[in-house]
């Protein structure tokens, strides 16, 4: 092993000036290369973080210590400055295909982004909208051929009813609650036959956020699941609350459905779903 001592020009097995120079140059080269590499990695990570998309987040909750939320987002669009609607696509990913994405949030995974496939850079938009749910033509497809993100058994009901559009599983203190929302009133000869007509209550929720001033589409759009709103209803909640299908039969389930702006009878929003309080955009 070399010993770094004062150079006397004579001693063998000590570092010569030439060797020291070579070593120093080598170290600089290594430093430059590694710096370039680190810069590249950082740039890639930064780009990944800045990819435009919808970032869904769990809001804070005072009462619910355990939260599981899963939902389908589809029929994405933006409004141009003239208010005209243009459809948007999701990037292909393990959780999304062009028309639809699946978001799964929990205490351990409190945020998830569905990346957008932008048509071109620089659009200015006056609004953004999507549907919470699975489009009808996908909702009752042959389940064994289902492609991502519809190949998730935990989100599937039956061929007749299709998928759970929204699944909320909550626990806090001694109370536990679940809301599973999907199409109801679907008629077919059996649960393993698709309905020929639309379901009586489609229960899809159309969200749109309109902006006073134009914003750049290339952005990360933060959308929060408003758990604070669910907190407000905590005291009224029984120890065990299960809302899955028979929403109108239970006062609490009915209140939850209405929090999405849905009319219980028709399974649609009255005029628009703007009264929903479960999701809010953080601008």
């Amino acid at each position: 092993m070399y010993q770094f001592q004062k150079y006397d020009g004579m001693t063998k097995n000590k570092v010569s000036f030439g060797q020291l120079k070579t070593l120093t140059i080598g170290l600089f080269v290594c430093l430059i290369v590694s710096t370039a590499y680190v810069e590249r990695v950082f740039a890639e990570e930064s780009n990944a973080q800045l990819s435009p998309g919808l970032q869904f987040m769990l809001g804070a909750s005072e009462h619910y210590a355990q939260v599981g939320a899963a939902f389908y987002v589809s029929e994405l669009y933006y409004l141009d400055q003239a208010g005209k609607q243009h459809s948007l696509k999701f990037e292909d990913s393990p959780n999304s295909q062009a028309r639809i994405g699946l978001v799964k949030l929990s205490n351990e995974n409190a945020a998830q982004t569905l990346a957008l496939a932008l048509p071109a850079a620089g659009q200015l938009i006056k609004g953004l909208g999507f549907t919470l749910g699975v489009p009808r033509d996908l909702n009752h497809g042959y389940p064994l051929r289902a492609e991502k993100p519809l190949n998730d058994a935990t989100m599937f009901w039956t061929w007749q009813q299709g998928y759970k559009f929204l699944r909320l599983d909550l626990a806090g203190g001694d109370k536990r609650a679940a809301l599973h929302l999907g199409a109801t009133g679907c008629e077919s000869p059996a649960p393993v036959r698709p309905p020929q007509k639309p379901c009586a209550q489609p229960n899809r929720v159309d969200f749109v956020w309109k902006f006073d001033t134009a914003r750049e589409l290339k952005n990360i759009w933060n959308i929060e699941l408003n758990l604070a709103y669910l907190d407000e209803q905590f005291d009224a909640l029984g120890d065990f609350q299960m809302c899955s299908g028979f929403y109108a039969n239970d006062t609490f389930c009915a209140a939850w459905i209405e929090s999405l702006g849905l009319d219980l009878e028709r399974g649609q929003c009255q005029s628009s779903c703007k009264h929903q309080q479960l999701f809010r955009m953080r601008l």
Partner: peptide, 19 residues
Amino acid sequence: GMTLFMSERTECRHCHGGF
């Protein structure tokens, strides 16, 4: 029976659902 099994009324499908 299948319709009952796969209904919200009995909830069997929540644990015993899928293919």
